[in-house]
């Protein structure tokens, strides 16, 4: 322990960001920075160099997956693991969608926060 997990969250809804900040930072070893503007995503992640980037998929203007692709294309962000948050699908649908149960990369907004924390843990432990 003692090692902080640093996360950058991009979600267009401020309420969603504040909720995750509160919930994730309640786990004492996580710190979270967020932006509600998809256009800030790449510069912010480049600057922060977080352990994980959490991206909302469906946002007006910028699509989360586009940000993911931009991160992968950028040398300084390519190795940062990305977790997608989606309101598109229900937890059941995500379960059907993601084959790799060990390292899920999409988490439904309908899932309990524990699922998200578990996903973060599984990324940081590997």
């Amino acid at each position: 322990m003692g090692q902080q997990t640093r996360i950058v969250l991009i979600d267009d809804d401020l309420d969603a960001c504040e909720l995750l900040k509160l919930q994730l930072e309640d786990e004492n070893d996580i710190s979270l920075t967020f932006s509600t503007n998809g256009d800030d995503a790449v510069p912010l992640i480049k600057k922060e160099q977080p352990d994980i980037a959490i991206l909302d998929i469906n946002m007006p203007g910028t699509h989360g997956v586009e940000i993911g692709a931009a991160l992968a294309a950028e040398e300084r962000t390519a190795s940062i693991p990305v977790l997608y948050l989606s309101g598109m699908v229900t937890p059941e649908e995500v379960a059907a969608l993601v084959n790799d149960e060990e390292k899920p990369s999409i988490i439904s907004k309908g899932s309990p926060v524990e699922d998200l924390i578990a996903a973060i843990r599984s990324i940081t432990s590997s």
Partner: peptide, 23 residues
């Protein structure tokens, strides 16, 4: 298009907060 996008955003956030019915 905007309506669908707005509903989508509120849906996701509501679920996250635990407002299942609203979502």
């Amino acid at each position: 298009d905007s309506l669908s996008q707005q509903a989508h955003t509120i849906k996701g956030t509501s679920w996250m907060y635990g407002f299942k019915y609203l979502g």
